[in-house]
Design a binder for these strands. Structure first.
Length: 463
RNA sequence: GGCGCUAUGGUGCAACGGUUAGCACGCGGCCCUUUCAAGGCCGAAAUACGGGUUCGAUUCCCGUUAGCGCUACCA
C-alpha cells in the first residue's frame, strides 16, 4: 500500500491540508509503506504520456478558451430555464471538440499566435467502451456519450483522468477502489489505458456517504474531517467499525466487529450500491461499545491522551506498577457511563483533578434537604474514623448514619455523590469512594458543606 | 437537457422466488436501581407507485416517480 496525494489542481490544493490528511489517516490506523507521493512533483511523467498519446494520434491539441466552472454551470442552468436556445447548450455537451480536426497549418498558426494550448483525448465517435466493476458489475457506455476530455491543461498540469492512469500504471496498482462518483468517468480512464497500450486494473466503486440532508458529505455538514472526530473523543476503532458498515455488510446482522474481524470478513462482494446517510447517533453508539467492551488496558492510552489534553494528567499514573493499577481501576469504573473520550475530562473530571465544580442541576436536585449539612458533617466524621477503607465499610457507615437520623440512605448517597464528584451522573457511590480514597472523600464532603442547605452559593471546591 | 446508478421502518443493514419481512441505532414503555448510564423485556415504525412474468414476488422484467452521480482546462 502506498499513499499518493492527487494535488493537480492549483486552485483548490492547499499544502497545509496534506498534514491534516496524513494525520487523519494515521488516526484511522491506515498505514502506508511507500510515499506520500505528490502528483505535483511528477509532472514530467504526465507530459511525457500526453506526448506519446499525441504522437500516436490518440490525443490532439486544443486551442479553445476554457470555460470556467461556475460560468459553465450557470450558463447551462440558464439554457435549461430558458427552454429555448438550449440547442446550443445541448450541442455543447458531450460534443467532439472542433480542434480535433485542425490541419497542421491551422495548428501552427494558433501556436504562433501564442494561443494557450490544452491536450484533449481523441474519443472515438463510435463504438462502446466496456469494463467490469467489482461492485456494479459489467459496464458499457457508448463512446459518443464521452466528450473529448482534457488530458493536459493549458497550464501544463494534468487533469485527474490522465494523472491517475499514468500513476496507477507506474505504481502497478492492482485495485482501484474509490467513490461511486468516479464510476461515470471510468470509461475515460479505460480509454486512456488502452491508448497507452495497457490493460486497466480491477475497478470497484463504493457508495457515497451522504449528510443528513442526503447530499454528499461536505464541510457544510459540520464535523467532516477525520480530525474533528478525533477531537470530539471518538475511538478510531469505533469509527472504523461504523464506517465499514456504511455501504457494506457481512451478509448477516453482525454489527459490533473488532477491526481484525472486519478485515477477515470484508469482501467487495458484500458492498452495496446505494449511498448511505452518515448517522451520527449510531456512530456514538459504536463509540460507547468500544469504550465499554474491550479490556480496559486497550482504553488506557486513549484516556491518557485526553487527560493530557485537558491538562490534568499525572505522570505517576503512567508508571507501571505504581499508580497504573489505580488509573486502570478508575477508568474501568467510569467507562460504563461514557459516550465519548472527552467524558473522562468532562463529567468525570473529579476523579482525576481536585478542582471541579458542582453541577447546578445536581445541587438543585440532591442538596435540597436542609438537614443535609448537619448529617454530612457527621458522615465525614464517621468516615474519617473508619479503621479500614473499602466498599462495605463505607456502605455500613453511611447506612448506620441514615438509620440513626431516620432518613433513607438514598438521600445521603445522592448528596454525598454530588459533594465528592460534583455530578448527579456518576458511578455508584461506594466504589467511587474507594477509588478517590479516604482523605479526599472526607475533605471533599467537609468542603462542600457550606454550599448546601438550599443557599445558592456560587463557587468552586478545592480539596 | 443528456447519460448512468439506486430505491426495504426516520437512519444503517438482512431476507439473494415461498419468512408472522429479521437485526441494529434512534424513539416510547416496563424491569432493574444509589443518581445517571449499561443491561433485560415489550412496543410503534418499511418493501416508492403502476404494470407484467410466475402457482407464488421485497426478490426477475418494463414504465413512472424520487434521490444521487457524471456531463469542468475539479478531483
Amino acid at each position: 500500500m502506498l499513499l499518493r496525494i492527487e494535488d493537480t489542481d492549483v486552485e483548490r490544493n492547499r499544502p497545509e491540508l496534506v498534514d491534516g490528511i496524513l494525520a487523519g489517516l494515521k488516526w484511522l490506523g491506515i498505514e502506508w509503506d511507500e510515499g506520500p507521493f505528490f502528483q505535483s512533483q511528477r509532472l514530467a511523467m504526465y507530459t511525457a504520456a500526453s506526448e506519446r498519446l499525441l504522437a500516436a494520434g490518440a490525443a490532439f491539441s486544443c486551442y479553445c478558451k476554457p470555460a470556467a466552472y461556475a460560468g459553465a454551470d450557470a450558463a447551462a442552468q440558464q439554457d435549461e430555464q430558458a427552454g429555448e436556445g438550449d440547442d446550443e447548450g445541448k450541442l455543447q455537451r458531450n460534443a467532439a471538440c472542433p480542434c480535433r480536426d485542425l490541419t497542421d497549418a491551422e495548428r501552427d498558426a494558433k501556436q504562433k499566435e501564442g494561443t494557450p494550448r490544452a491536450i484533449r483525448f481523441r474519443t472515438p465517435r463510435e463504438g462502446v467502451t466496456k469494463f467490469e466493476d467489482a461492485v456494479f458489475g459489467p459496464r458499457e457506455v457508448q463512446n459518443p456519450e464521452i466528450e473529448d476530455f482534457v488530458l493536459l491543461r493549458s497550464s501544463g498540469l494534468p487533469t485527474y483522468q490522465l494523472s491517475v492512469v499514468v500513476d496507477d500504471i507506474d505504481m502497478r496498482i492492482s485495485h482501484v477502489i474509490r467513490g461511486a462518483d468516479h464510476l461515470s468517468n471510468t470509461p475515460k480512464q479505460v480509454l486512456i489505458y488502452r491508448a497507452l497500450g495497457m490493460e486497466p486494473p480491477i475497478f470497484a466503486h463504493v457508495p457515497l456517504i451522504l449528510g443528513p440532508d442526503r447530499t454528499r458529505l461536505s464541510k457544510r455538514h459540520g464535523a467532516t474531517s477525520v480530525g474533528s472526530y478525533a477531537d470530539e473523543g471518538f475511538l478510531p476503532e469505533a469509527f472504523r467499525n461504523f464506517l465499514t458498515l456504511l455501504g457494506w455488510s457481512p451478509g448477516n446482522d453482525a454489527e459490533y466487529m473488532r477491526t481484525a474481524e472486519l478485515i477477515e470478513r470484508f469482501s467487495l462482494a458484500g458492498v452495496s450500491r446505494t449511498n448511505a446517510v452518515f448517522d451520527r447517533p449510531k456512530l456514538e453508539w459504536f463509540n460507547t461499545q468500544y469504550l465499554q467492551k474491550p479490556p480496559v488496558e486497550e482504553l488506557l492510552p486513549h484516556v491518557e491522551a485526553y487527560l493530557k489534553r485537558a491538562g490534568i494528567w499525572q505522570v505517576r499514573w503512567g508508571a507501571q506498577g505504581g499508580d497504573r493499577a489505580w488509573f486502570a481501576h478508575a477508568v474501568d469504573l467510569i467507562r460504563p457511563r461514557t459516550r465519548l473520550l472527552t467524558d473522562f475530562s468532562g463529567w468525570a473530571r473529579a476523579f482525576f483533578a481536585d478542582d471541579f465544580d458542582y453541577e447546578p442541576e445536581a445541587r438543585a436536585k440532591f442538596w435540597k434537604d436542609e438537614r443535609l449539612p448537619g448529617m454530612l458533617a457527621k458522615l465525614a466524621d464517621a468516615l474519617d474514623a473508619l479503621p479500614e477503607w473499602n466498599h462495605d465499610a463505607c456502605d455500613a457507615a453511611l447506612r448506620a448514619l441514615a438509620g440513626a437520623e431516620s432518613v433513607k440512605a438514598g438521600l445521603l448517597i445522592n448528596a454525598t455523590r454530588v459533594a465528592i464528584v460534583g455530578r448527579a451522573v456518576a458511578p455508584p457511590l461506594f466504589e467511587t469512594m474507594v477509588v478517590l480514597g479516604k482523605e479526599r472523600v472526607v475533605n471533599r464532603i467537609r468542603r462542600a458543606l457550606p454550599f448546601m442547605s438550599g443557599q445558592s452559593v456560587a463557587g468552586q471546591s478545592t480539596s
